[in-house]
Write a protein that binds this DNA or RNA. Structure first.
Lengths: 188, 188
DNA sequence: CCCACATGAGACACTCATGTCTCATCGCGG
DNA sequence: CCGCGATGAGACATGAGTGTCTCATGTGGG
């Protein structure tokens, strides 16, 4: 049963990532179950989205662990983070825009914790002297999520290749568009 | 009448920017007119969104003109572009996510033209030697829109100050998070 | 073999936004 | 002063999505 629930959750994630307005009918069909069963596993659309949010948070935290954010240099930590979080980017993009709708309600505490951990890497990088100090850690964190969403959409619309995903995001976030005269790290 | 329509359009833009799911009732109330009148000006919600799209495209093109994208250096052109497009960022963020929903339908041709012009700047910057060549112009363009949306949301949620908006986006897009040893341009 | 339980299919009521309509009112020009 | 046009208010039908319910089926364990 728990397995069925997880299966339905994954299917919902995959579908809603592509079509954020999909109905419960469509989600059920995508999961290969009936709408009734879907309703037995998730009280309603709202509960489903909440569950997806929890899934997204969990995957984010897994990625945070795998990225070993506390190891130096911070630059490499950020690269690892982008790489590890890539599989969840589509789901995150969905949740990211979904969150724009939660007007009054405060967001899930999990996001705050994730935000804090990512913000901390950027702050450490600044204190290290690795990162410039005129871009706030909060903005860098927000920009990371924005770029993840942009990248996910770009891949989805076929305007970009999935294999470039990680590099494009990490390189832009860290290095920017301007060419660096000093020879920096090349490619992967 | 045309003035009324424009007034309603602006009000709708302002509201939908904040709450993308606002109903026709709410839009009408925000514009200070009745739902009936709103319907007389825009055949339906769809027509309203289309009109907003046209408005967004128009504002984008105005910004493109004001940014004088064809002047060198490309770096400054991009900075001007970010500055000029800033007032429209909220509307663009709305349209950006709205476009994710248009599954089958091809997008407005205006976007393609705007995309082309922005892409061209990045390409020119690469040929100039100003920009690195391992980030595709298409990705840089997409990233610009993504960062604009992130910035707009950040300002809206109060997590960032509006006055930093332009700098944060332009600096990240162009320079990235890494510190540059060589002394570059400072501040504005 | 039989029963319990999960499932699928579908009916049903309800909510909500939309689109259309009518009608009274108001303002402005002839 | 009269009438026209635009507007606001509201009723109404419609459609979509949701949530709840019932019932038949089928499958697996006792």
């Amino acid at each position: 049963m728990a397995l069925d629930r997880d299966h339905a959750l994954r299917a919902a994630a995959a579908l809603l990532t592509r079509k954020s307005t999909a109905t419960m009918d469509e989600v059920a069909k995508a999961a290969g179950i009936s709408r009734a069963t879907l309703h037995r596993q998730f009280a309603g659309r709202d509960a489903l989205v909440r569950a997806l949010e929890a899934l997204g948070i969990a995957e984010c935290e897994t990625a945070l662990e795998a990225a070993r954010l506390d190891e130096n240099p911070a630059e490499d930590a950020v690269r690892r983070l982008v790489r590890e979080v890539e599989p969840a980017a589509g789901l995150l993009a969905f949740l990211y825009t979904e969150n724009q709708l939660f007007e009054g309600e405060e967001q899930h505490a999990g996001w705050a914790r994730i935000d804090d951990r990512i913000t901390a890497v950027f702050r450490r990088g600044q204190q290290n002297g690795e990162f410039r100090i005129d871009l706030t850690p909060a903005w860098l964190t927000e920009a990371l999520f924005g770029l993840l969403a942009s990248g996910a959409w770009m891949v989805q619309s076929g305007k970009g290749a999935p294999k470039d995903f990680t590099r494009m995001i990490a390189e832009l976030l860290l290095g920017g568009a301007l060419r660096r005269d000093e020879t920096q790290r090349e490619g992967s």
